[in-house]
Each structure stands twice: as C-alpha cells, then as structure tokens.
Computed example of a mutant assay.
Amino acid sequence: MSLTGKTLLITGASRGVGKAIALRAARDGANVVIAAKTVEPHPRLPGTIYSAAEEIEAAGGKALPVVTDIRDEESVERAVEKAVERFGGIDVLVNNASAINLSGTLELPMKRYDLMQQVNARGTFLCSQKCLPHLFNAPNPHVLSLAPPLDMHPRWFRDHPAYTIAKYGMSMCMLGMAEEFRDRGVAFNALWPRTLLKTAAVDNLLGGPEMSARGRYPTIVADAAYAILNRPSRECTGRFFIDEQVLREEGVSDFAAYRVDSDLSEDQLQLDLFVRP
C-alpha cells in the first residue's frame, strides 16, 4: 500500500484527526492540501494551516496550506484550483472539517444549528461536488468523510437531534454519491472512531483531559483511513467503516499503542457517542 505521489485535499487538516491523516499520508511522500480556516493560533485549539504544513513537510510529504471556508462556494473552488495548479490533480478528498454542539432542542441557538448544517452536511456536499471533476481523472479516486454509520434508532437523536441531523447529512452524502458515481469508479465511504479520541477539541471544549484519557489517539483513525484509501475504489465504496474494524480487516489485533492511558483495558475505554456498546 502506498500514497506516494498522490494528492489529498483534506478539510480541517490544521489539527486533530485531519492532521493525523495528513501526516500518515505524508510518510509515503504524498501531496497534502490543507484546506482549513485557522491562520492564527486559537487560544484553546493549537495549530494553524502553516504549522500543519511544516509538520507534513517534515514527515516527508509536500504541503499546500490554503485558507478555506467550506461554507463558501468560491473559497472551496479556489482551494481546488490551487490544488490542481500545484499538484496537477486530486486523487483523494477527505471531508474531515466538522462543527459540533450537543445541545438539546430548547437550548440550541439557531445560529449554531445553521453552522452545523453549513459545515457538516452542506460542506461535505460542496467539497465533493467541486473535487469530482478532478477525481474522475484519478487512477484510484476516493472520497472519505468522517461521519457516523447511519442508524435510525431514536437513541442517536434524543439528546442532540440537531448535531445528529448534521452528521447524518455527511453520511447520507456518502451513501447517495457512492451509488451515483459507482460507474465512474469514485469511492465514497464514511469512517468513524469506535472510541473517544484525544484531540484538542475534547481536551479543551468537550469534556477535558480526564475524558480524553479514556480514549485513543487520532492515529488509529489515520491508520484506518490510510488502509481505506489504498483499497481499489471500484471495489470499496458505499461503506460505513469503524476504525477498529478496518484495522482488524488489515490484520491488526493489538490496539494498545493507540490507548491514551496504557493502564486501562480495552473494555474500559469510552465508546464514541454514535457507537453501540
């Protein structure tokens, strides 16, 4: 398996899971377009498109940081144009950028509802639409979205219906586009973590270090994404993957290296909120 010379456009790649996927690809010498908004360090969320680019280059890849607001059509078009101008095409799109708010119906401000819809569902649709003309020319084109498996059980909607609707919008884009473009050979898949991940967002905004200590490092998602993106696009499409499941399919059976707290057992880890026990 190798992504050598392939060009990946990754939204939200300045930190967290997006950057982890970028760094894994960079180890093969891939070209990575960092399509994100952060140009100045956030007080609680470290990392910018420029610091991520430095890490990608240090890991062996070629980086192109592009200031991108995936809510804005012209901004996405510019990012795609710059990617093609610099690297000659696009082989992979990773829809990683996401907005989260777990408030219930009565507590959620409508501007936050709109933000989640614009970034998650609409952003995924928009980025996929703009990359497709170039993906058609790639030898093994993939679109991978960090989105949960579709499950209409009320338990996934009860506590945060707005967020679930927004994330399921990403999932439905993958489901629908997989069929729409099956004959064109472009793979559309979703990937989701089995457990909570240790990211700056969780540490600073969504529970704190004590919560993230019960999870895994984002490298597990990056390794799973790497495996998916190396599979033949015509044979691997329309699927909802869980990171651990993917790696087991690749022959991995020991996940200790991914655990934040090595003293915890696997069954003590905190499952992600869209994963059944």
Score class of each variant (00 low, 15 high):
residue 277 P to C: 03
residue 259 R to G: 01
residue 59 A to R: 13
residue 233 S to A: 15
residue 230 N to I: 08
residue 61 G to C: 06
residue 62 K to W: 12
residue 217 Y to E: 09
residue 268 Q to G: 04
residue 55 E to Q: 12
residue 130 K to A: 01
residue 5 G to A: 08
residue 30 A to C: 05
residue 104 G to H: 09
residue 13 A to F: 00
residue 2 S to Y: 11
residue 85 E to L: 07
residue 145 S to H: 09
residue 265 S to C: 13
residue 48 T to L: 09
residue 28 D to E: 14
residue 164 T to M: 00
residue 275 V to K: 03
residue 203 D to I: 01
residue 37 K to Q: 12
residue 221 V to L: 14
residue 229 L to D: 15
residue 49 I to C: 03
residue 108 L to S: 08
residue 156 W to D: 02
residue 268 Q to L: 06
residue 259 R to M: 08
residue 260 V to G: 04
residue 81 E to D: 12
residue 131 C to T: 11
residue 124 T to K: 06
residue 9 L to V: 13
residue 234 R to N: 11
residue 118 Q to C: 10
residue 9 L to N: 03
residue 213 A to S: 12
residue 238 G to L: 02
residue 120 N to Y: 14
residue 63 A to I: 03
residue 277 P to D: 09
residue 35 A to V: 02
residue 269 L to W: 13
residue 195 T to R: 14
residue 18 G to S: 09
residue 62 K to C: 01
residue 97 A to Q: 12
residue 153 H to Y: 12
residue 174 M to S: 15
residue 168 Y to C: 13
residue 19 K to W: 01
residue 193 P to N: 00
residue 40 E to A: 13
residue 139 P to S: 13
residue 106 L to Y: 00
residue 101 N to H: 10
residue 15 R to I: 05
residue 86 R to D: 03
residue 53 A to P: 02
residue 136 F to T: 12
residue 257 A to W: 09
residue 89 G to N: 05
residue 89 G to L: 00
residue 183 D to I: 03
residue 121 A to W: 15
residue 191 L to S: 01
residue 214 R to C: 07
residue 192 W to M: 10
residue 139 P to A: 05
residue 9 L to G: 03
residue 129 Q to L: 10
residue 167 K to L: 12
residue 100 I to D: 07
residue 238 G to V: 03
residue 159 D to L: 07
residue 121 A to R: 11
residue 5 G to S: 14
residue 98 S to E: 08
residue 16 G to L: 12
residue 58 A to K: 15
residue 155 R to W: 13
residue 199 T to Q: 03
residue 149 P to F: 05
residue 275 V to E: 08
residue 141 P to F: 03
residue 104 G to Y: 02
residue 20 A to E: 06
residue 109 P to F: 06
residue 135 L to Y: 06
residue 160 H to E: 12
residue 52 A to F: 04
residue 152 M to F: 09
residue 260 V to C: 08
residue 1 M to P: 06
residue 238 G to A: 02
